[in-house]
C-alpha cells in the first residue's frame, strides 16, 4: 500500500475508534438498591472511572452525583446497566427536555 493511502487508512481508523468521554450524572436509587455497592460494581463490570461528587442516602432514596469517564461504548454500557437495575440516570442538568 502506498504511503499516502496507508496514512489515510490510519487516519480513518483513528477517527472510527471509540473516543474517551466524561459524563456527569445524577443517579437516583430505588429503595431495594440503596444498600447495594453499585459504584464499586460499575468499576468491576466496565472499564470506567467513577468519581462521586455528592451523595445523599436515606431509607427511601439514594442520590449520587457521579462523574463517569471511559471509552464511549463502556460509558454507554454502564449507563444501560444502571437503568436495568431500576436506577434513574439523569444528566447533571436533570430535566433538559422542558415543556
Amino acid at each position: 500500500m502506498p504511503a499516502k493511502a496507508k496514512k489515510k487508512a490510519a487516519k480513518a481508523a483513528k477517527s472510527a475508534a471509540p473516543k474517551e468521554e466524561r459524563t456527569r450524572l445524577w443517579l437516583m436509587y430505588p429503595p431495594k438498591q440503596i444498600t447495594q455497592p453499585i459504584i464499586w460494581q460499575i468499576a468491576q463490570k466496565f472499564k470506567v472511572v467513577t468519581n462521586v461528587r455528592q451523595a445523599s442516602v436515606t431509607g427511601e432514596i439514594g442520590i449520587v452525583c457521579l462523574e463517569l469517564s471511559g471509552l464511549r461504548p463502556e460509558v454507554k454500557a454502564a449507563i444501560k446497566w444502571l437503568v436495568s437495575l431500576g436506577i434513574s440516570v439523569e444528566p447533571v442538568e436533570i430535566n433538559v427536555v422542558e415543556s
Partner: peptide, 23 residues
C-alpha cells in the same frame, strides 16, 4: 424514551458551541 432523549440533549449541548438556553 424521555430519559434517552434527555441524556442525548445534554450530550449535544455539551458537544456543540451553541447557546443551549436551558443548559
Amino acid at each position: 424514551h424521555y430519559d434517552e432523549v434527555n441524556r442525548l440533549c445534554a450530550e449535544i449541548a455539551g458537544k456543540y458551541g451553541w447557546a443551549f438556553v436551558n443548559v
